[in-house]
Design a protein around this nucleic acid. Structure first.
Length: 576
DNA sequence: AGTCTCACG
DNA sequence: ACGTACGTGAGACTC
């Protein structure tokens, strides 16, 4: 959003690439080489000459992580098209095998280690910005970038056809890139005054807790240090339930502290309270305002398309996919995400999408029927396993069934379920046994999926997205168990990711067709956040819901319906 | 840079 | 007997 353009590198054939500098500092605007020859162009002139090429329908533009370049040019009135992205090609072909950054791909596929950026621009306190790099060195670095990208494309593009992944690339990856770029560009409004107030409130509470913690500990120490905390709890006071981390230090995670708190110890309880506030303050109330772009007044995240092996997006700088919601204090932070005056935020989220897709993929008739009947799926599960009628069901019974339902999606284990519910391993094992008896298709699906993964080394989503499972043949039972659970989870999580990707690709055109000015701002795995003028809120909601619910069609016929709930309000908390 | 912890779906 | 819920990103501490 704020990067200045130093230059553009281009490659037309392997081994031949160039760098066109336009923003280096040497020579104050225009740079000359030793012989007095002009080696730097004026940016406006460069863009004017490149625009027809970058927008020419007959010229394919190839890039690595092209969303970055797309944004740079989009900020300057140029929309790159048509294009291929070697990062996305790699992601479609090799998700789960390795990362998809250029340096890694170059070493792997070309056997060539590119010049490290740190060697060119330095690191730490000696770091310079790229405009200060000499044009000679910038040329070596940048032209190599373009050359490597072209060479990668020549290897990866034919594999796309040979490995039958063209549809995934062309319907789920490539068209999403400009959509995400526009979302990033749009940004979301955040209320810095509210965040500052929250930060102060939290700081006051933390200071009070620190005093109390110091008194209980008999000494003042750094509450933020797990090392010091562990020594006080388990060496000084010799409290029971001490567990070691893999490096031999005392574990002080929330599970350990909650157990101690349940035994009536005040110190760990206060540390838990302190940690909640420290987390919210450090990660959100204090960090978010520093991301407000001074030109737009909004926060512009980056969405990473090739980060999660399952097809999910990731959000960075800042991560807007983990804004608090589970605690009252956390929701106060969500209230700082706002729509400007005269606008509303709309949140539209899929209801139980992973369980619905699981019912379809694993072909579980009772689950499908329950969704068709619009039943409370966790209550239904509870009544099936525990034989308790849905009417008048105790909340605890439903909570257990809900944990089992989530466990199923994650590749359930007795250990994990017991841990989650705080019950004995034997009881958890019993629940799972009953679950499998009641829905025999589930065990079949799990066994079949593990077998498929073992035979092929990968699993696939309904849309044909391939997720490689590296450790599936590991002789280490722990590693292999983890890989098996990942294999069970990936088709479900991945299909849900595919569905929302389809929706996101179609939404901008659907909004345009409906003559709506509303903008899509954020994606949070099963949720899309929009901003709409007050007068357009209802129409926008109806377009979003319609496109999201119909997203899988016609590529895939689902035997369960997908339902979407949408709500509008002045802030994200109220809209969700 | 690695570890621990914890925020989200 | 072993070690386990799936997928992420980020901040603080520690070395």
């Amino acid at each position: 959003m704020q990067a200045r353009l130093c230059g553009v590198s281009l490659a037309l054939a392997p081994g031949e690439a160039c760098y066109i500098p336009c923003g280096h500092v040497s020579g104050g605007g225009l740079a000359f080489d030793g012989g007095g020859k002009l080696v730097q162009l004026d940016e406006a002139d460069l863009l004017k000459r490149l625009k027809p090429l970058l927008e020419d329908d007959a010229v394919l533009k190839i890039g690595q992580n092209l969303k970055y370049d797309y944004l740079i040019f989009r900020q300057r009135g140029i929309r790159i098209a048509p294009f291929d992205d070697t990062m996305l090609l790699s992601y479609v072909l090799d998700a789960g095998k390795q990362g998809h950054g250029m340096d890694e791909l170059s070493e792997l596929h070309l056997g060539h280690k590119p010049i490290a950026f740190g060697d060119v621009a330095g690191k730490g306190k000696d770091k310079i910005t790229f405009d200060q790099v000499s044009i000679e060195e910038a040329t070596r670095y940048s032209a190599e970038d373009a050359d490597v990208t072209l060479r990668l494309w020549m290897l990866l593009k034919p594999r796309l056809m040979a490995e039958k992944k063209r549809t995934v690339y062309e319907t789920l990856e490539r068209p999403l890139m400009p959509v995400l770029a526009e979302m990033e560009r749009e940004g979301i409004a955040v209320d810095p005054d509210l965040l500052r107030k929250l930060s102060n409130d939290f700081a006051t509470e933390m200071a009070a807790l620190e005093t109390e913690i110091g008194k209980l500990a008999g000494e003042s120490f750094n509450v933020a240090s797990p090392k010091q905390l562990g020594e006080i709890l388990f060496d000084k006071f010799s409290l029971p339930g001490g567990r070691k981390t893999k490096t031999g230090a005392w574990s002080t995670d929330a599970d350990v502290l909650e157990e101690l708190a349940a035994q009536g110890h005040d110190l760990p309880k206060k540390v838990l309270d302190w940690r909640l506030l420290a987390k919210l303050r450090g990660t959100y109330t204090d960090a978010l305002p520093t991301y407000i772009n001074p030109q737009t007044g909004r926060v512009h995240t980056s969405f990473a398309m090739a980060a999660a092996a399952t097809g999910r997006l990731a959000s960075t700088d800042p991560n807007l996919q983990n804004i608090p919601i589970r605690t009252a204090e956390g929701r106060r932070i969500r209230q700082a995400f706002i729509a400007p005056k005269g606008f509303k935020l709309i949140s539209a989220d899929y209801s139980q999408i992973e369980l619905r897709l699981f019912a379809h993929i694993a072909e579980i008739p009772q689950l499908k029927q329950a969704f068709a009947d619009g039943l409370d799926i966790h209550a239904m599960t509870a009544s099936e396993i525990f034989g308790v009628p849905v009417k008048g069901m105790p909340a605890e019974v439903r909570r257990r069934a809900k944990a089992i339902n989530f466990g199923i999606i994650y590749g359930i284990s007795g250990f994990g379920l017991a841990n989650q519910l705080g019950i004995a391993r034997s009881v958890a094992d019993d629940y799972i046994k009953k679950y499998f008896q009641r829905f025999p298709g589930i065990r079949d699906y799990m066994e079949a999926t593990k077998e498929f993964a073992c035979e092929h080394g990968y699993v696939e989503t309904l849309f044909g997205r391939r997720v490689h499972i590296r450790e599936i043949k590991s002789t280490n039972p722990g590693m292999r168990g983890g890989a098996e659970r990942a294999a069970i989870n990936a088709p479900i999580q991945g299909t849900a990711a595919d569905v929302i990707r389809r929706a996101m690709i179609r939404i901008p055109e659907a909004l345009a067709e409906a003559r709506l000015k509303a903008r899509m701002l954020l994606q949070v795995h099963d949720e899309l956040v929009f901003e709409a003028m007050d007068a357009e809120v209802e129409k926008t909601q109806s377009v979003a819901v319609k496109v999201m619910e119909q997203a899988p069609l016609p590529a895939v016929q689902l035997s369960v319906k997908l339902t979407v709930d949408a709500r509008a309000a002045q802030n994200w908390d109220a809209a969700h």
